[in-house]
Design a protein around this nucleic acid. Structure first.
Lengths: 165, 165
DNA sequence: TACCTTGAGTTGACGGTTCAAGTCCGACAG
DNA sequence: CTGTCGGACTTGAACCGTCAACTCAAGGTA
C-alpha cells in the first residue's frame, strides 16, 4: 500500500476538493428535499419524468433514459415500477426490436411534470444560477464537461453497467 | 401552480445545469465504486474516517463530524454504529459535557485511513484535478463556496437538521 | 427539590439502491 | 432450424438512508 510515495493533494487542490464535495452533497440534499416537500417526488424520480417529457412522443428506451439519468438499469427499473404504479408512465416492448423496452409518459405524468417544473426551476435558480455570475456558470459548464469526459474514458465503471467492471 | 409565468432556464443555463447534474452523479458513483472495490468502504464511510483522522487526538463530537460530512446526525449515528462494529472507531460521552458524544478513531481505523488514502487521492486526481486547468479548479472552488453560501442561507434545510423545517 | 425546555444523539420502521442472479429477444454459426 | 451468445432489462434479497419518536444531560425557574 505504501511502497511508493503518492502525490498528495496540494493545499489549494484539497480546498477545492472539500468545497466541491460539500457543494454536491448539499445541493442534492437541498433540491431533493424541496421536491419531496412540494411535489412528493424525489429528485431522481423527477429527473426520469422530465427526461421522458422532453422526448418525441414522450417515450424512449429504458437504456437511453438510464444514460440520460446517469444511473444503472436496475435502479431505473425499480423506479419505473413505482412511477408506473402511480400512473405516470407505462412500459411496452419496443415494436421495432423486442430486446428493448420503451418507457412512455402518460397524460397524468405529463401533468405532474408541468405542475412541478416551475417550482423546481425556481429552486435551481436559487441555489445554483443566481449565486453565480454569468461567467461562473459558463465556466462550470466547461468544468462539468471535462470531468464527464474524464469519468467516461476511465477504465472501469462507465455509466450504465449493471455489473461494474 | 401555473398562475404566474415562471422564469424558465435559458439555454445556456439549462446546459450548465444538465452537465452539472451528470457530473455530480457520476463523480460520486465513480469514487464510491473505486473505494468500494479497493477498500471495501463507501465514499461516505471514508469521509467519516478521514474527517476523524484529521482532528487532534483523532476524536471529535458527533455533531462536528456531521457538519463536516454535510449529513444528518441520524445518518452519522447509523454509520458510526457500523464502523464501530468493524473496530475502526468507538464512541464515549464527552467528559466535559455529557450531552455531547465523542467519536474516537482507533488504531485500526487510523491504519485503514492510511492504507486507503493514497489510492483514493489518485482517484480524485484522475477524475477531478487532472482533467482541469489550474485556473479551472480555482474557479471551481469559488463556485462551490458561493453555492454553499446560497444553500446555507436558504430558509429551510440547513445542514444538520434531523427534522428539516 | 421538582419541573420545563432545549439540543445532542439514538433507535426502529419504512422506503429506495445495489448487487447478483435470472429471463427474454435477436443475431449469428453450424 | 438449432444451439449459443451477448445485450437489455427484471427480480428479490441485503444493505443503507430518512423520518419520526424517543432518551438523556444540562440549564433555568420557582
Amino acid at each position: 500500500m505504501n511502497t511508493e510515495e503518492p502525490r498528495w493533494l496540494e493545499a489549494d487542490e484539497q480546498a477545492t476538493w472539500l468545497a466541491m464535495i460539500k457543494m454536491i452533497t448539499r445541493l442534492q440534499a437541498s433540491l431533493d428535499a424541496d421536491l419531496q416537500h412540494k411535489a412528493g417526488v424525489s429528485f431522481f424520480e423527477y429527473q426520469v419524468l422530465a427526461g421522458l417529457s422532453m422526448r418525441p412522443d414522450r417515450r424512449t428506451r429504458m437504456s437511453d433514459l438510464a444514460e440520460f439519468s446517469a444511473c444503472s438499469l436496475s435502479r431505473l427499473s425499480h423506479t419505473a415500477r413505482r412511477l408506473e404504479s402511480k400512473g405516470w408512465l407505462y412500459r411496452i416492448p419496443d415494436p421495432t426490436d423486442g430486446r428493448y423496452t420503451l418507457a412512455v409518459l402518460t397524460d397524468a405524468g405529463w401533468d405532474k411534470v408541468v405542475a412541478t417544473a416551475p417550482g423546481h426551476v425556481a429552486d435551481v435558480r436559487r441555489v445554483l444560477i443566481d449565486p453565480l455570475t454569468q461567467a461562473q456558470y459558463k465556466q462550470l459548464r466547461q468544468i462539468s464537461e471535462r470531468v464527464n469526459d474524464a469519468i467516461g474514458h476511465s477504465p472501469c465503471l462507465g455509466v450504465n453497467n449493471n455489473q461494474p467492471c
